[in-house]
């Protein structure tokens, strides 16, 4: 089976999962006390007004009817209207999604590019000072709350040294006129980079630590394999062995771990966005909960699920690309 067919199959398999997520959030949200209309209209609204509004938003129908309607509409790409913002939920999400994706991409890039060399050095110099140092760093990394790292970074670089902005994220495609002090696209990009640094470190540290731990142990394991001994026996240079012969094999468990880290990274994005006042998906869901914006809570939760499903698919495809033994045949 080709990668393409596998991808399509996996996406189709994701549909029931996404319906499941929608269902869970739907019933959770409907367990909320009070109707959203009451919240929207405030405590002083008259009975008639409420009844009229409930009818308009369809809240007068029994829950199972609303459920079926919601799921059907969602499958058609309609997640309802945000009561708070007064726009369709999808519009709001599409506005916020790129921000979160940029943040996630940047923090994974940071995590991987630091963790892999760190893990390899650690494995090659096993039980030497470098190794001990990097193991301590990883241990601290997996144990530190990311929002706290964010706070510390803001204290040091935002307030004391005043070298990095501690508020918001400048998107690379923001119109130049909207970015303060920017006269060209390059200025905007510089601002983007600067505003990304601290959130990236805050969010990426956990992933970095987790990946470097697994990189180390996986590299150690691979370096002890017979095929590595064989390469040595045929005069291959140690550096080539690390870079080529052991590297690809050692990345297999790493890819798996990156997949498993997705869920904590997505959760971490909520906290990081809060700390740095970044208007992404994470802040959106918090705002939705604060304003009891039902449709928006359901929509954002669903999209977090979508991000997870796609992220997992990407890691699985990467795995299959790295390991020729993976066949899609037996997969179910």
């Amino acid at each position: 089976m080709s990668h393409l067919r596998y991808t399509i199959k996996r996406l189709l398999q994701a549909i029931p999962v996404l319906i499941g997520i929608s269902s869970i959030t739907f019933f959770l949200i409907n367990a909320m006390p009070g109707s959203p209309v009451e919240v929207m209209l405030g405590p002083t609204a008259s009975e008639e007004l409420i009844a009229a509004a409930e009818e308009r938003y369809g809240f007068d129908q029994p829950i199972h009817v609303r459920y079926v309607k919601y799921i059907l509409a969602a499958m058609g790409g309609d997640l309802g209207r945000s009561i708070h913002y007064g726009v369709p939920v999808t519009t709001k999400i599409m506005e916020r999604l790129p921000v979160t994706l940029l943040l996630l991409a940047s923090s994974f890039a940071f995590a991987i590019s630091v963790a892999i060399p760190l893990g390899i050095v650690s494995a090659r110099r096993r039980n030497q000072p470098v190794d001990h140092g990097s193991r301590v760093v990883s241990l601290i990394g997996v144990s530190t709350p990311n929002f706290w790292i964010g706070l510390l970074l803001i204290i040091v670089f935002g307030y004391h040294l005043q070298v990095l902005p501690s508020n918001g994220l400048v998107m690379p495609l923001t119109p130049i006129s909207e970015v303060e002090g920017a006269t060209s696209r390059l200025d905007v990009l510089v601002q983007t980079a600067k505003s990304l640094i601290m959130p990236t470190i805050a969010l990426g540290t956990l992933q970095m630590a987790a990946v470097s731990r697994i990189e180390r142990s996986s590299m150690l394991e691979v370096l002890g394999r017979d095929y590595i001994k064989l390469a040595r026996a045929f005069g291959v240079k140690e550096s080539v062995i690390t870079r080529k012969h052991a590297f690809r094999n050692a990345q297999l468990p790493v890819v798996t771990i990156i997949g498993l880290q997705l869920t904590s990274a997505l959760g971490g994005a909520v906290l990081t966005e809060t700390v740095f006042n970044i208007n992404g998906m994470g802040r959106l869901i918090i705002q939705a909960v604060r304003t009891q914006d039902y449709a928006l809570i359901m929509g954002t939760t669903l999209f977090f699920g979508v991000m997870f499903v796609i992220g997992t698919l990407v890691t699985d495809l990467t795995y299959a690309y790295l390991d020729p033994r993976v066949t899609y045949e037996g997969e179910d």
């Binding site: 997520i21 869970i24 997705l262 869920t263 869901i285 977090f304 997870f308």
Partner: peptide
């Protein structure tokens, strides 16, 4: 399904 929604969310 439970696993597909990020824990915090």
């Amino acid at each position: 399904i439970l696993y597909s929604i990020p824990f915090l969310v």
